[in-house]
């Protein structure tokens, strides 16, 4: 193995591990935010409370593509008389106006990839982009 190739491979490995580490850190931060701000209502299993607090686990909206809506819900809270996956929820969700774009991205990435949910991660850039649009 030539020295140059070795260096290149090392750099690639280093970048990759830094990248996954950053991702893991984002998810850790998302988990921490979830536990301090969301768990009380949406519960440890993301299952919510029947008729009261919407479930996040298994929700089509949570894993869906309408990121702007999700960001708005986290920032401004949510209390609408609409059916979510066919059920109504009576409680009023707490707004989080103080969360930074990176934090919103982390908590959304966390709820989109916890329990049985599997979906794309959200970046701070995406959060800023959809916030600017409206």
């Amino acid at each position: 193995m030539s020295k140059k190739l070795y260096v290149r491979i090392s750099i690639i490995i280093f970048c990759l591990s830094a990248f996954t580490k950053a991702q893991a850190q984002n998810l850790m931060n998302g988990k921490k935010i979830y536990e301090t701000r969301c768990l009380v209502c949406h519960q440890a299993d993301g299952g919510g409370v029947p008729h009261m607090n919407a479930p996040l686990d298994g929700s089509t909206n949570v894993v869906g593509n309408n990121i702007a809506r999700l960001v708005k819900i986290i920032k401004e809270g949510y209390n609408e008389r609409v059916a979510l996956d066919g059920e109504m929820y009576s409680n009023a969700m707490t707004p989080n106006p103080d969360l930074k774009p990176a934090d919103i991205a982390d908590v959304l990435s966390y709820i989109r990839n916890s329990w049985s949910n599997k979906s794309s991660k959200i970046t701070a850039a995406q959060v800023m982009q959809v916030s600017r649009k409206k």
């Binding site: 519960q43 440890a44 299993d45 299952g47 919510g48 409370v49 029947p50 479930p55």
Partner: peptide, 10 residues
């Protein structure tokens, strides 16, 4: 009961 949705009846 750790999670309310696990309860069959309320």
């Amino acid at each position: 009961i750790m999670n309310p949705r696990k309860a069959k009846a309320r």
